[in-house]
């Protein structure tokens, strides 16, 4: 991997407390190559979402990214971006799908407007062009463009998550972060969404940072996987190796907590 798209180096994040700090991410480093799907697995609270937030610089106090940390995207340190550069960077280079499909669209604004605001603030498109682009994106995820005037509550959970994915595609980003994108959905919808992401990835060539606690799901979807435990990255390897020859004790434990049928049947 000579030119990684994303290179996270020594990322250390604390939550500042009244008296003591809580180290949520402890000296984590990993790379993601262009077009690669990299998975971060671990139980809830192990710091994987904290990493996702840091890459788009979405954290607010009391979170604090320690100074030795570096997040390089195409060689540029995201942590050094000025506010204007950051605004331009977000979504254009890194887009994000959030955990709760039911809650990641603004409930009081139309789907079309939620495409428009992102298109209008990042491009010089006219209203008509933005509308055309939004329609095109919706078609990608098999939702009729007539529904741009509808509100989020008029869609099912799976459809809402597809709409979020469509919004992610709007600016043709280089990296898409998916923070447990299918946890809130049932298994059938889950599979359909992942399939869709995979197809889109082949078409557009973006990289994916995929975060979940479901190792089985991860192995079939990712190229490489990192296993996190209590803020540290304890193992990192190709997906197959993680499945067949897990190195760290914790990874083995994670596997043994799955019914064997589940893991085998998926591959």
């Amino acid at each position: 991997m000579n030119h990684p798209l994303l290179s996270v180096k020594n990322l250390t994040i604390d939550y500042i407390g009244d008296r003591k700090d809580f180290r949520a991410v402890d000296d984590v480093s990993f790379d993601i190559a262009p077009g690669e799907v990299f998975g971060l697995a671990g139980e809830s609270g192990c710091g994987k979402s904290t990493i996702a937030f840091a890459i788009s610089r979405l954290h607010k106090p009391p979170a604090l990214i320690r100074r030795q940390s570096k997040i390089l995207l195409n060689g540029r340190d995201v942590l050094d971006l000025t506010p204007q550069a950051l605004a331009a960077f977000r979504w254009r280079e890194v887009a994000m799908v959030f955990q709760s499909a039911m809650n990641s669209l603004n409930p009081v604004s139309r789907i079309g407007d939620q495409f428009h605001d992102v298109l209008m603030s990042h491009t010089t498109m006219t209203k008509a062009q933005a509308r055309e682009r939004a329609a095109e994106m919706l078609r990608l995820v098999d939702i009729s463009p007539d529904r741009l005037r509808d509100y989020p509550h008029q869609f099912s959970g799976g459809m809402r998550q597809r709409i979020v994915i469509a919004i992610c595609m709007a600016l043709d980003p280089k990296l898409v972060i998916m923070d447990e994108p299918t946890t809130a959905l049932d298994v059938v919808v889950q599979r359909e969404i992942l399939q869709r992401i995979n197809d889109l990835r082949r078409t557009f060539g973006f990289s994916v940072l995929f975060i979940t606690h479901d190792l089985g799901l991860m192995v079939q979807f990712c190229d490489r996987i990192g296993i996190m435990l209590a803020g540290r990255l304890v193992e990192e390897n190709a997906a197959e190796a993680i499945f067949q020859t897990p190195g760290h004790d914790y990874t083995k434990k994670l596997w043994s907590s799955f019914p064997s049928l589940h893991g085998g049947a998926l591959l």
Binding site: I16, D18, R57, P61, L64, L79
Partner: peptide
């Protein structure tokens, strides 16, 4: 709004960390 805010500001100002 706890005491952590003062500690946070102190750390951020002294260059120990950022967001």
């Amino acid at each position: 709004t706890g005491n952590w805010r003062d500690r946070w500001i102190l750390l951020a100002r002294s260059g120990e960390g950022r967001l």
